[in-house]
Design a protein around this nucleic acid. Structure first.
Length: 114
DNA sequence: TGCTTGACATAAT
DNA sequence: CATTATGCCAAGC
């Protein structure tokens, strides 16, 4: 795998704690690639089958799914997120204030009482 | 090796 | 609120 950049992104996504989500831009910055939100998405698009990367924990800046539900991936992502205790609002988006990776600072964001 | 594309983000229209 | 435009830059061909 010459694409070490993807590799690094995969690792970063792998470090996302359970029941939490991170935005593409967030992951990019944390991965050492500030501004390369697209690379994150691109990397996940090329995500190898043997990877245990929780790509479903990566969402867009609005806490929503960028993938088309029709393609299956979007629907699958939402299912996986709900399986981790993450809730979606009426708009099909996630409350980043509660489930965002940086949401650790919020007190009532800790409750995972499903 | 150079052009095209892209699971994004943000501002403007 | 939906669409358009632009930035940014690596991966794929």
């Amino acid at each position: 795998m010459s694409s070490s950049l993807h590799q690094r992104i995969y690792e970063m996504v792998r470090h996302i704690p359970f029941g939490r989500v991170a935005a593409y831009g967030e992951v990019a910055s944390l991965a050492g690639l500030p501004g390369h939100a697209r690379l994150v998405g691109y990397a996940l698009h090329n995500l190898p089958d043997d990877s245990d990367v929780p790509w479903h924990r990566v969402v867009n800046a609005g806490g929503g799914i960028s993938l088309d539900r029709e393609y299956g991936a979007g629907t699958l992502q939402r299912s996986l997120l709900e399986a981790e205790g993450i809730r979606f609002d009426s708009h099909g988006k996630i409350d980043l204030s509660a489930f965002g990776w940086d949401g650790e600072g919020s007190a009532d964001a800790n409750k995972q009482g499903v």
